[in-house]
């Protein structure tokens, strides 16, 4: 499917330190920069390296971006149990919430948004590399929004990890990306 880059992208990853919110944001920004004239990326995290609230806001547009921070976002990916309720409130009406339900136990109550529960952390642990959980969520994001073709993300992963410590995870990250896409493609609503 051809992707049209005329929509405004506005995404938040709300997690805890170590969940990969920063890597998610950096990667998505790099990928977005290949198709959009303007991008912005704001990391916002507490002084704690591990376990503190960590959030990134990513925007992309063909027009100049007025503000790089906002309360409401079209898509929110949440991996923080403590941040879950607030994240749910911050999705724009008609927007998408992607929840790592192997970490977050609560369920969303809003009916005006689309919610996907993806056990990203559990699957990542089972495949042997817990660090790839954020890439499973990236795949889920791609499939749920069709914002970018997977090839653009794969290219970005390759070019940004070359020569860095992330290179070791290159194939695992790509596998995780496709795992996330599959999870959404085969997604079935839980009977309520």
């Amino acid at each position: 499917m051809a992707v049209k880059y005329d929509k405004r992208v506005r995404v938040i990853f709300a997690g805890l330190g170590g969940h990969g919110a920063l890597a998610f944001g950096e990667l998505l920004t790099e990928a977005a920069a290949r198709s959009y004239k303007y991008v912005s990326f704001v990391p916002n995290y507490s002084p704690m390296m591990r376990g503190g609230e960590s959030e990134t806001m990513i925007a992309a547009s063909q027009e100049e971006i007025d503000s790089p921070v906002w309360r409401e976002a079209d898509v929110i990916i949440v991996t923080s149990p403590t941040g879950f309720r607030v994240a749910e409130q911050r999705v724009s009406p008609g927007g998408i919430l992607i929840v790592d339900d192997s970490v977050v136990r609560e369920k969303a109550v809003r009916e005006d948004i689309k919610v996907f529960y993806i056990p990203a952390r559990r699957i990542a642990c089972e495949t042997g590399d817990p660090l790839t959980a954020n890439f499973i969520l990236m795949g889920a994001y791609l499939e749920a929004t069709k914002a970018f073709p997977v090839e653009i993300l794969e290219e970005t992963i390759e070019s940004t990890s070359k020569g860095t410590s992330r290179e070791r995870l290159l194939s695992a990250n790509k596998r995780a990306l496709h795992e996330g896409i599959k999870l959404i493609a085969n997604y079935r609503e839980e009977p309520s």
Binding site: A14, N44, Y45, S46, G52, E53, S54, E55, S67, V69, W70, R71, E72, V86, Q89, R90
Partner: peptide, 14 residues
């Protein structure tokens, strides 16, 4: 400030 994000920010909506 909204306290939504880690430290809270002043958002356009406010």
């Amino acid at each position: 400030r909204h306290t939504a994000s880690p430290e809270g920010l002043i958002f356009p909506e406010r």
